[in-house]
Write a protein that binds this DNA or RNA. Structure first.
Lengths: 163, 163
DNA sequence: TCTGCTTCGTAGGCAAGGCATACAATAGGA
DNA sequence: TCCTATTGTATGCCTTGCCTACGAAGCAGA
């Protein structure tokens, strides 16, 4: 399990045959860790997303929330949190920011006094429209390295993790 | 430890008009967004990782750094940052935390006075050994839903994104 | 009806990351 | 030697994630 600790940067650790001469991206056995690749891929996506949305000044989470509120007018914060796998407190913070920008509003639910019904404001609708264009651009960047079949495959595999 | 995030599997009726037909995981067209699935999968991994490493009090990044320093004794912070796709400043913060725990030390590089050569301390070596066991556990959890072939496939696909 | 439990939103706090800027020391090339 | 690039460092800001606690509202049973 524990590798030779005197190994140099060039050492092939026995995990990757290509590591012998290829010094550049040799990160050893960590390359076999699936979670590691998920993190790196996520990081790469996040960076590109942030760049793409720099003008709009929106984060991934914020866009996701706008999108879902648009898809489900009157949705409650708890429901939103469940769909996006977020904490209630975290959801609060995001909704607060979006509300501060007048992208959406909270209405007390008529059916359940505990809930807040969320609705997009005109400014939110306009922003979402712009955001969807940016998302298309971002998605094109991600998908450019895959065939359609591979995209479907990748989504299917990833779904098994988060479902 | 008890989390209320996934408390109920059944969506409360009447929460949204769209919830009527396609109940549970209906998040609309957002389901076709590859980036969305990457984020969710990453989030699920991160949560499980954090749980698994609660006893060790280590984060993903910290483990990655320990691992890489072990694989490449004397590595510089910049090199580390490049391999993990991190900012120099971010790397600093992580190294600082690991140094505060006496897991590693900074030595001025002999070849290049600007660089810091990083080496694990005995405590770091011991911790890494424990961490690798926890990682094996965590990886088993992630991989449990895939065949070996699918794992290789998934890693290959994800690699195209972050390379 | 009253009572106790649950759910939902809210508030405050804390840690970790990510990123930007600025600065000092060192290397290396012109 | 001088100029520039690299490296580490220090600061600060923002977002996310999670925890605890609390009040308001719904709900179910005594």
């Amino acid at each position: 399990m524990i590798k030779d600790r005197f190994a140099d940067a060039i050492t092939p650790a026995g995990s990757s045959p290509a590591a012998a001469g290829a010094e550049e991206a040799d990160i050893g056995a960590i390359n076999d860790i699936l979670g590691f690749h998920i993190r790196l891929a996520h990081g790469a996506c996040l960076r590109h997303f942030t760049e793409t949305f720099a003008d709009l000044d929106l984060t991934q989470k914020q866009v996701s929330v706008l999108w879902l509120v648009d898809d489900h007018p009157g949705i409650a914060q708890t429901d939103l949190a469940q769909r996006l796998r977020m904490d209630r407190a975290t959801t609060m913070a995001i909704i607060n920011r979006l509300q501060a920008k007048h992208f959406l509003r909270r209405d007390r639910s008529e059916k359940d006094g505990r809930k807040q019904a969320l609705h997009l404001q005109p400014e939110g609708i306009a922003m979402l429209a712009r955001a969807k264009q940016a998302i298309a651009e971002h998605e094109a960047w991600v998908k450019s390295r895959f065939t359609d079949k591979e995209v479907r495959q990748l989504i299917e595999l990833l779904s098994r993790i988060h479902e």
